[in-house]
């Protein structure tokens, strides 16, 4: 079996090299070298391992068009979990060296400490981590990251973004929309209660708050895509960051709204924050339109913003297109798609 040399260049210009065997995907090959690249579904479905191949020959396995669009593919875009080297490769990543882990992803356990409906078919799940002999009791993660939650009895696993910030009490907060046919939703509705046990794998992901000096920031969320945005905004408030910022939060109808109290708290803590709530089916209580409409409006005021997008794939693509069309460089657009569950 032949091996190919993979040279990976991160957004901040640092290089990593690892070997990849024939028939081995790049995420697995990197992990074999103790390089744990951001990834999630490892099945070509989520786009979390998106990167660009700038040199060499490769073939791609099956990928979801939502995770890797035809347009991205034509420009060298790859999903590393579905990329198989046919020669030595040059890969560039959309994240910095600092977002690559060189240790295995932590595996912990925890207990449901809170589960409440907060409107719009959404629950607020609070998990209290157990004391870990290696990691202690704290919850260390970057705002914007996610963890995988597993129900021990069934092995059912889903990934959710954290809505709170790192803390030493070991508390994880999630905002989860209950889907009528979703298995994890059903577990939350029918079985889970305070005291239920969960396995927690993480933190993971490179969709995190970027250090951008004093540039403005736009956080554009569809539905529970607001969770990582709340984490990032809370961190800005904790650190006293004064960047001008706009939170655009879109749902279908007024009855789907949730987390308004958390948004109000952030508004009070972050004087530079403005909020634009969008309803697709407006009843006049909020602005009409999609989150992307809100983004376009913001870009007329603050084109030099960093843009954070989190929501369904269609919203991400529309948001990225709108930002690009307005002239925002690709290096200032950060996104995370919802996984189909």
């Amino acid at each position: 079996m032949s091996e190919h040399q993979i040279r990976l260049t991160t957004r901040d210009g640092q290089s990593l090299n690892f070997a990849c065997a024939d028939g081995e995907d790049l995420i697995s090959a990197a992990a074999r070298a103790d390089i744990h690249l951001p990834a999630l579904c490892k099945g070509g479905g989520c786009g979390a391992c998106h990167a660009t191949c700038t040199g060499g020959d490769f073939h791609l396995g099956e990928t979801s068009r939502d995770a890797l669009s035809d347009d991205a593919r034509q420009h060298g875009g790859v999903l590393l979990c579905r990329t198989y080297a046919d020669s030595d490769l040059e890969i560039t990543t959309p994240y910095d060296h600092g977002h690559i882990s060189f240790r295995p992803i932590p595996q912990r356990t925890g207990t449901v400490a809170g589960l409440e409906h907060i409107g719009g078919q959404t629950v607020r799940l609070v998990v209290q981590l157990d004391d870990d002999p290696e990691l202690g009791t704290g919850a260390e993660f970057d705002p914007g990251q996610f963890v995988e939650l597993t129900v021990p009895e069934s092995g059912l696993t889903r990934a959710y973004s954290l809505a709170n910030t790192a803390n030493w009490s070991g508390t994880l907060v999630f905002l989860i929309r209950l889907h009528p046919t979703g298995q994890f939703s059903r577990w939350l509705k029918d079985t889970a209660n305070v005291g239920s046990r969960l396995q927690v794998r993480g933190p993971q992901g490179a969709f995190v708050l970027q250090d951008n000096g004093t540039r403005p920031r736009a956080f554009v969320a569809g539905g529970t895509g607001i969770a990582p945005m709340l984490a990032m905004l809370t961190r800005m408030a904790e650190f006293g960051e004064g960047n001008r910022c706009r939170l655009v939060f879109g749902v279908t109808r007024a009855s789907d709204l949730f987390a308004l109290d958390m948004i109000d708290t952030l508004r009070a803590d972050l004087p530079a924050l403005s909020v634009d709530i969008r309803l697709w089916e407006s009843d006049g209580s909020q602005s009409a339109g999609t989150p992307v409409d809100g983004l376009q409006h913001w870009l007329t005021e603050a084109l030099n913003s960093d843009i954070y997008l989190c929501g369904p794939p269609a919203m991400i693509e529309a948001g990225e297109r709108a930002a690009r069309d307005a002239g925002v460089p690709a290096t200032r657009i950060f996104s995370e798609r919802f996984l189909p569950t």
């Binding site: 002999p133 290696e134 990691l135 202690g136 009791t137 704290g138 030493w168 070991g170």
Partner: peptide, 14 residues
């Protein structure tokens, strides 16, 4: 105080 909190939460030397 955040430092002390962190010290209590982190495992320390075994």
């Amino acid at each position: 105080s955040a430092v002390v909190q962190a010290a209590k939460a982190l495992p320390g030397f075994k």
